[in-house]
Design a protein around this nucleic acid. Structure first.
Length: 955
RNA sequence: GCGGGUGUGGCGAAAUUGGUAGACGUAUCAGACUUAGGAUCUGACGCCGCGAGGCAUGGGGGUUCGAGUCCCUCCACCCGCACCA
């Protein structure tokens, strides 16, 4: 009877399905545990071996927790709305509803083969009306709320209306809203009132500058734009003024920041979020303009106010036209034309280039009245702070560069800290040339200045964030429709009974008129004046973890009872790519729902584990060695190599050779095994093969093939390979289906874990999988012999065997608990090797081992457990078994081999009884022959005995 | 530039947290059983040395009886952010 994994896996998967083995209920005496995967976009490309890595890890942990007696929620669903799905639909010419359905089916069948323990009865799709009904509903709650900064929480908008009716907005002013009192408020007409309220709502519509992507025909959120290009597809993105919906995530900036202290995310991920939020403390300061008017700037360093040598406005700043003098008008207009001509990409690419123009105006330093020239320059951004800065060249490098470039004299306020060659941003200097601040350390001066400014009424303490409110509308078809009707410019919400507002079926979904979405082409839609844009991809994913708790609830998005029972996601596994998108939005939504009293916790995830990427190995060139008889005058045969680059293809396709041949003799190797090419060869490769564009020049006349590794056969280079992200286009993918077909799901699961630490990215290497497969076969053979059949027996286990088992239980338990799945797999392998050596076929050992393995390789574990218990009534599924109990007594030894060292160098090992006293150990150690030899008659100064570890004799 | 991380055999990696570095797996080599093996099993496998032994965890220094692990200092690579005032 051999290990027939195909039959076994098919059998148990069917069994689990039929019995609903993994269905969980919301009531149980067991403690709860919630393990969640980031649900996937059902893209058409299908899975490659990199995708399931995180799913396998979470599955192992779920199964482990279940065996340890927890009620485990482990659901799966699909983020089926959004741009990728629509793009895919457009590419294939099919309706997104159809392609999504197909992709999900395909996806599900791929997942099923791997043997996951998801509770499929809770499966959800963000594009299902019963689901997006509640996405729309939560949007309406956001629309119907404002953020009270004094209470530091969201409240119903009606409360704000009451405040306005009684006292106007003096307690809650906003820069974009005029000040009004109660009488004025009550006198406003409805449109005016609604326009004002819009400025306070957490979901609001506003006319503003957005990231417009022409190729995708939609607006994108900041996190969907990378270096001026769209994250999806890499299309150019431009700034455009449009009416848009936004989420007031900035209201939650501080709480999003503080919340990071309570959650277990990796330091780098927390840092990414902090960076994105970009909190900075400083002051706003008003500078009078000579000849009238004033200018507000934001600075984090008010202590440097006496070092201000010029001011800079963003070119888009509203004051530019007003303050420019007649003499400078032509120059300023010219500069503004230049700025307009430059795309965001150019601006970002050429940050080192210093440009700017003097307006002719002067500002006055509020403390000493010094006249300060006012410039405009690209390096000041309109969207941050006040769009204007006070420039302190001795303390800020950018200001310094600007001053040097335009020959503006630099005032030194930090004495010897400034060397005249570069700026010094220190806070430790004692201030000079700084009026009333002279002699004060900068760090302490910051508060002094702010107090003084506030006293004089020309400035105030101010905290700024880099994060902007999140764009919440997309001019696309495949998303949640907004439950909003526009009536004479007023946004009216749909009644709750009208939800879900169904996404209408359309046959074509090209853009609507004037930059509107496809919904604008539907007569019934526009007749009702319904909002024509749809919600962004992150809408549905911002709360899905709550819906899993109560997936079929028709009355509520999730009952309070269910959300209180399951609470936070205890373990969330997914990639880092959502660091500043989904992971921030879902945290905000959770905080909002908490504020509204709809759930009882305000951070969605307790612990987050980011699985690393599995990279593919692509061969980029082949080297061929040819021996020519006697090419030279000396008559010696010569071996010449040719490097043959080809398009990035995997090993299997390595024959797809392209014609360029470059002699390998031009290659030289450095100590690190990198290859060098001459410059001209490199240029030749680069011009022919775009994938080499990233190659770097390593020396004056040679170029290092960066990232190239050798595949060496008998010392001879055959293929040059690089590691890169797996993608279908590069033909370097492996699908889980193929691996599962060949080796089985259990082997696949264990091998993915065995590859290395879960959080690290690592290359896929198909060869190594044999080792894991071999392990499972060895395990099987402990139970069954190919010829003899059953070989396990009921003999009593001996101490050596019990020791092996319990050592393994402890190791696997510890490793699983700390997500060190690779070492846990190793522990299993060691265990089987040792049992083999002991020729142990005893049920007493093998049965617990099968249970132990059930988290990692559930199918074979089920089968073996079942076999061992065959003939018994009930209780023959590993799912009903308890996790084997570790017993210390089997691994503690009566004596142990101790390494004995003299002066730190280990010379021998001697057995020491565990209950020996230090004095006894000393005597035994000194009496040892080998040690006496190394002591050479010297008397020991000190004997160090580390119990359980080692003995060291110092002479 | 700022921040986070990594550096150990041919390769993926371990190391009970300061205690015999390289577990486990691959690759390679040798052997056994075989008509054969891409099945199974055994052995070798960091470097130098015939050997005893010596040297080895990116480089250099330090603390310690003892350092991959702690401290200082360079170096290399990866990831994120980047004119944010």
């Amino acid at each position: 009877m051999e290990y027939n994994f195909r039959e076994i896996e098919k059998k148990w998967q069917a069994q689990w399905n039929q019995t609903g083995a993994y269905t969980v209920t919301n009531d149980s005496d067991k403690p709860k545990f919630y393990v969640l995967d980031m649900f996937p976009y059902p893209s058409g490309a299908g899975l490659h071996v990199g995708h399931p890595l995180g799913y396998i890890a979470s599955d192992i942990y779920s199964r482990y927790k279940r065996l340890k007696g927890f009620n485990v929620l482990h659901p799966m669903g699909y983020d089926s709305f959004g741009l990728p799905a629509e793009q895919y639909a457009i590419e294939t010419g099919q309706h997104p509803a159809i392609t999504t359905e197909n992709n999900i089916r395909n996806f599900r069948s791929q997942l099923n083969k791997i043997g996951f323990c998801y509770d499929w009865s809770r499966e959800l799709r963000t594009s299902d009306p019963p689901y997006y009904k509640w996405t729309q509903w939560i949007f309406l709650q956001l629309f119907d709320a404002w953020y009270d900064p004094t209470a530091n929480k969201a409240k119903k908008i009606q409360e704000l209306v009451s405040i306005f009716e009684q006292e106007g907005n003096k307690r809650f002013p906003r820069p974009s809203v005029i000040a009004f009192d109660a009488r004025e408020w009550n006198a406003f007409d409805e449109k005016q009132q609604q326009d004002i309220l819009m400025e306070y709502r957490l979901a609001y519509s506003a006319y503003g500058e957005v990231n417009w992507c022409e190729a995708l025909g939609t607006v994108l959120a900041n996190d969907e734009v990378i270096n001026g290009l769209s994250e999806r597809g890499g299309h150019p993105v431009v700034k455009k003024k449009m009416r848009q919906w936004y989420l007031r995530i900035t209201a939650y900036a501080d709480r999003l920041l503080q919340g990071l202290e309570q959650v277990e995310f990796s330091e780098s991920l927390k840092e990414q979020q902090r960076n994105w939020i970009g909190r900075s403390q400083g002051a706003e300061i008003d500078f009078d303009i000579k000849g009238g008017g004033s200018l507000k700037v934001y600075t984090t360093r008010p202590d440097t106010i006496f070092g201000v040598d010029f001011m800079v406005l963003a070119p888009e700043h509203e004051l530019v036209a007003a303050i420019t003098t007649a003499e400078q008008k032509a120059a300023i207009d010219g500069y503004l034309d230049y700025v307009k001509s430059r795309s965001d990409r150019e601006r970002m690419a050429e940050v080192k280039q210093i440009t700017g123009c003097f307006t002719g105006a002067y500002a006055l330093n509020p403390f000493d009245g010094r006249e300060i020239p006012v410039w405009i320059a690209e390096y000041v951004l309109a969207g941050y702070g006040t769009g204007a800065i006070m420039a302190v060249p001795c303390g800020d490098q950018r200001d310094f560069n600007f001053a040097r470039h335009f020959n503006i004299p630099v005032t030194n306020i930090i004495g010897s800290y400034y060397n005249g060659q570069e700026a010094n941003p220190t806070k430790d200097a004692v201030l000079e040339n700084s009026g009333f601040l002279d002699g004060m350390v900068m760090r302490d001066a910051i508060n002094q200045v702010i107090e003084k400014l506030e006293e004089k009424g020309i400035g105030k303490r101010q905290i700024n964030y880099r994060m902007r409110d999140a764009g919440y509308s997309r001019q696309r078809y495949w998303g949640e429709p907004f439950p909003i009707v526009w009536e004479d410019g007023i946004a009216r919400v749909l009644n709750e009974t009208e939800l879900p507002l169904h996404l209408p079926h359309v046959d074509t979904y090209g853009p609507g008129p004037e930059g509107e979405g496809p919904l604008a082409n539907i007569p019934e839609w526009t007749a009702r004046h319904l909002e024509t844009s749809t919600m962004p991809g992150y809408a549905g994913s911002s709360w899905y973890f709550l819906r899993y708790m109560d997936p079929h609830n028709k009355e509520e998005f999730c009952s309070r009872q269910a959300s209180d029972y399951w609470g936070q996601v205890d373990l969330y596994i997914g990639g880092t790519e959502h660091a500043v998108g989904h992971l921030l939005y879902s945290r905000m939504w959770t905080k909002f729902l908490y504020d509204m009293g709809l759930i009882g916790h305000d951070e969605p995830y307790k612990k987050l584990v980011n699985q690393g990427m599995i990279t593919g190995k692509s061969a980029v060139a082949k080297v061929v060695w040819i021996t020519t008889p006697a090419p030279n005058n000396d008559g010696q045969p010569k071996e010449t190599g040719y490097i043959i680059p080809f398009k990035a293809v995997p090993h299997e396709h390595a024959d797809t050779v392209v014609e360029t041949h470059l002699p390998v003799e031009k290659l030289s190797f450095d100590n690190n095994g990198n290859y060098y090419l001459t410059e001209s060869d490199l240029q030749e490769i680069k011009s022919k093969y775009p994938q080499f564009e990233e190659l770097e020049i390593a020396g004056p006349d040679s170029a290092l093939l960066k990232g190239v590794q050798s595949a060496s056969v008998n010392g001879q280079v055959e293929l040059l390979t690089i590691e890169e992200k797996m993608s279908k286009r590069k033909l370097n993918t492996f699908t889980p289906d193929d691996i599962v077909d060949k080796y089985g799901a259990d082997t696949f699961r264990m091998y993915e874990m065995f590859l290395g630490p879960i959080e690290q990215s690592k290359p896929w290497d198909t060869k190594g999988i044999e080792g894991v497969h071999r392990f499972l076969r060895k395990l099987w053979r402990l139970f069954f012999d190919e010829v003899k059949g059953k070989v396990w027996n009921d003999e009593r286990a001996g101490e050596a065997e019990l020791k092996v088992l319990h050592k393994t239980i402890r190791k696997v338990e510890e490793d699983t608990e700390k997500f060190s799945f690779n070492t846990a797999v190793s522990a299993f392998m060691v265990c089987v090797n040792e049992l083999n050596e002991l020729k142990c076929h005893k049920k007493e050992i093998l049965e617990p081992l099968a249970v132990l393995l059930a988290a990692y390789a559930p199918h074979i574990a089920e089968e073996l457990y079942h076999q061992v218990h065959a003939g018994e009534q009930d209780g023959n599924s590993v799912l009903d078994a308890a996790f084997p109990r570790f017993e210390e007594k089997w691994v503690t030894e009566s004596s142990k081999e101790y390494p004995v060292s003299v002066n730190g160098k280990v010379r021998t090992t001697i057995p020491i009884a565990l209950n020996s006293s230090a004095a006894e150990v000393e005597t035994i150690a000194l009496a040892n022959e080998t040690i006496q030899k190394w002591l050479e008659g010297r008397t020991p100064k000190k004997i160090i005995y580390v119990q359980g570890k080692m003995i060291n004799i110092v002479v």
